[in-house]
Design a protein around this nucleic acid. Structure first.
Length: 369
DNA sequence: AACTGGGACAACCGCGATATA
DNA sequence: TTATATCGCGGTTGTCCCAGT
């Protein structure tokens, strides 16, 4: 049996709200509140509207202290940071912007901000196997888009070094604009604007917001990138690598280094906290994991922020041990913010007896050897 | 002036989560 | 425990407006 409709569809008005309807709804809610029942509310007021429609109208338009339009640069940055960090959770993003609604932000993102970020990069569907062809296309489009549209890419390109832009992923050169990385460690830079680049702040915020971001949403042992000692004495560090679509990603990959310098990878369901080893014999990944990674999505419209090599299976040989396999970011250049980020992580390892070079090698900085 | 395409925004729809009987 | 009602969210669609042809 299907769910009963929330209202009589045939007897309900749709489309734009009239000023009279707005006034009725607003004045009733201001006097009596919603009564905790949106479905019953329109009948009480005498509106031929669905309760859901009333709720939406109130939340997105009639509610006091709402702002419309005129997003500031600061708000842009917050939206971008949070989008890269948590994906299209508009309600969470909206909670960071007083007076803004999730619908407003969603519309703003879809119609303006995404385009502002992407500039005029129109790309064919991603060819996962050929990063160079994608990069070439971006480069070509960059060339053709150089038509004086100074707003394009302004958030992503703060310096004018075209060659570098062509060779590097489109991270902001100005680290104050740098999107949050999906790693729960303090980033190695300061942010003079709102502290949304600080992972702790975001996490606290999310926990505060409750729901699936409550404290137990993340498995406790994945709570940050730390070196710690497990109960059996193994030295462990962990990095979360989110896979799957931004909204549906319920799994992350944690890596563990034991005292023999062997790395193991486990998939952890963030909801259940269940660990599953994703490596089989000889360090190969299990087929299900391979499939999961190969079918990974990226936040809509921001695929280009994720270098083709960001998810990469490889074998790293070191003089003393074979690190069986890893998932690595591979930005390459040591001038990038990500390098500094990794360098900071590496420093953490160092204090725990893992050489910085080894840790950086983990992140595939060849020069770190 | 008429048409067209695209941008911007409001509103709707469907579904999962949660509450409640 | 289960079925049903409601809420809340994110994706999508509809509509209006404006600039370009």
């Amino acid at each position: 049996m299907g769910r009963a409709p929330c209202c009589d569809k045939a007897n309900v008005k749709k489309g734009p709200w009239s000023p009279e309807e707005d006034a009725k709804l607003k004045s009733y809610i201001e006097k009596h509140g919603t009564g905790g029942n949106w479905i019953a509310l329109p009948q009480k007021i005498g509106l031929k509207r669905c309760g859901k429609s009333c709720r939406l109208r109130w939340l997105n338009y009639l509610r006091p202290n709402l702002k419309h339009g005129g997003f500031s640069e600061e708000e842009d940055n917050i939206i971008c940071s949070l989008y890269v960090s948590i994906g299209s959770r508009w309600s969470v993003i909206a909670a960071q912007l007083p007076g803004r609604t999730d619908n407003d932000i969603k519309n703003y993102w879809n119609t303006r901000l995404k385009k502002k970020l992407l500039g005029k990069h129109r790309r064919e569907p991603r060819n996962r196997g050929n990063y160079n062809s994608v990069k070439q296309e971006i480069d070509v489009n960059r060339g053709s888009s150089n038509d004086g549209d100074s707003s394009s890419l302004s958030l992503l390109q703060e310096n004018g070094n075209t060659t570098q832009q062509q060779q590097q992923p489109c991270w902001p050169q100005n680290i104050n604009n740098m999107p949050v990385l999906p790693l729960q460690v303090p980033l190695p830079y300061t942010n003079q604007g709102p502290c949304f680049n600080d992972q702790d702040s975001i996490k606290k915020l999310l926990i505060k917001l409750g729901g699936r971001f409550s404290g137990d949403y993340y498995h406790p042992t994945l709570d940050g990138l730390n070196l710690e000692f497990s109960s059996d004495g193994q030295q462990i560090y962990q990095e979360q690598v989110h896979v799957g679509s931004s909204s549906a990603a319920a799994a992350c990959i944690s890596s563990t280094i034991n005292n023999n310098n062997e790395v193991q990878f486990a998939q952890t369901d963030q909801y259940s906290g269940v660990h599953n080893l994703v490596q089989g014999q000889g360090g190969n990944f299990t087929p299900s994991f391979e499939e999961m990674v190969s079918s990974s999505n990226y936040p809509d419209g921001l695929e280009f922020l994720y270098n083709e090599d960001m998810i990469d299976h490889r074998i790293i040989e070191s003089p003393t041990t074979t690190v069986t396999a890893t998932i690595t970011t591979n930005w390459g250049e040591t001038s990038t913010p990500l390098y500094h980020h990794h360098n900071s992580i590496a420093s953490n390892y160092q204090s725990q007896g893992v050489t910085q070079e080894c840790a950086l090698q983990y992140f595939s900085y060849p020069g770190a050897q």
